[in-house]
Design a binder for these strands. Structure first.
Lengths: 192, 192
DNA sequence: ATGTTAAAAGAACGATCATTCTGTAATTGT
DNA sequence: ACAATTACAGAATGATCGTTCTTTTAACAT
């Protein structure tokens, strides 16, 4: 009945996500998103709404495809300190090497976007969920004796959320791989 | 002979610095800089050149007025671990409370500006100088027995530069003061 | 007082952005 | 084959940005 679409929404979101990740929200003009997704301007607006909503879809896609598996591991019943260590080593690698020093899309977006609005709220909820995931792992670690009894697991869970932002910032700012790895190694020494 | 200037270049730079600090480079349109500095568009261009050069002047002003005294303390002959601790506690306070959660101007600028150009180079040199300052303090700390002999002071100096970025990022991203202070406290525990 | 000088005020320009609109092309049911 | 429908391609629009230009204003030397 009608002309079929030239692009796949699934592939388009993935391309949009990588474009936002590499260039930032303000560094990714709509024309670039059109080119990278292979879609048409009209097609993107029709399918996803405006640029802000395209960013929201990209963030959700990022949570699912980039972080999904890693967070899943932390949700397993036995996940404790070794799993946390693995999680941070993995995101440290993603933030610098898998993404060419682009850091973490969610962290970057939170720093780039204004203080209010749906994107900011979405990210706030994401990090709150992540913190309780960390907290569960820390509690399990304490029960397993992997953590000294005196440690404040609640404070530690805040530290770990901060560590995500830290790793993202350092993945982008550190001039040398050696310096970056020294940073990550020492920052993670609390989990040893 | 001629009409006198209405604005003081010194005060204008200070106002520009605070404007860039609060709003970021791309978030500070020239009109806003004109308003905040009390200067005229023409006056700013005449005195400082274009917007990029105004940012460079603002960065130097920031290094002098915001960080100058703190860095000076680290240059004293006896400065070691306690002085480093003090330095980081102070910048942690500045990055969140003195600046209303704006973080560190230099860190923000490095993340916001493109990979090449005079601003990027200037910031790169700044952090390299800062790292050697940290390194000197760490070496003094080791000689004074404040640091275990096994510690790799070079790796630690990289960690401390990373910590500056970490604190800046967390000052902006952390939702609560409690979470922020938990992060800073634990991140600095290596200096105790 | 008046002419000279340089700054202030803001209009103007060209570029870029997100978004919308218009005309063209492609597919399908009849 | 052709009408109906919908996507595509890119022009048009309106806003905002950095920068420049033009006009007006203020101070001082004479």
């Amino acid at each position: 009945m009608a002309r079929p679409r030239k692009f796949s929404p699934e592939l388009a979101i993935d391309a949009a996500m990588h474009t936002f990740w590499s260039n930032g929200f303000h560094g990714a003009p709509f024309d670039l998103l059109v080119k990278k997704t292979g879609a048409s301007r009209h097609g993107l607006y029709q399918e996803f709404g405006d640029k802000d909503r395209l960013l929201l879809f990209s963030l959700q896609h990022y949570e699912k495809t980039v972080l999904g598996e890693l967070v899943e591991e932390l949700h397993r019943d036995e996940a404790a300190l070794p799993e946390l260590r693995h999680f941070f080593h993995r995101i440290a690698q993603i933030a610098r090497y898998d993404s060419n020093g682009a850091g973490c899309l969610i962290c970057n977006t939170q720093l780039e976007m204004p203080e209010q609005g749906p994107v900011h709220d979405h990210i706030g909820r994401f990090f709150e969920r992540l913190r309780t995931t960390f907290l569960r792992c820390l509690e399990r670690a304490r029960h397993k004796g992997q953590l000294e009894d005196g440690k404040d697991v609640n404070a530690l869970s805040h530290y770990l959320v901060g560590l995500v932002h830290s790793i993202s910032a350092n993945a982008q700012s550190n001039p040398s791989d050696e310096a970056y790895e020294a940073y990550v190694e020492i920052a993670l020494s609390l989990l040893s």
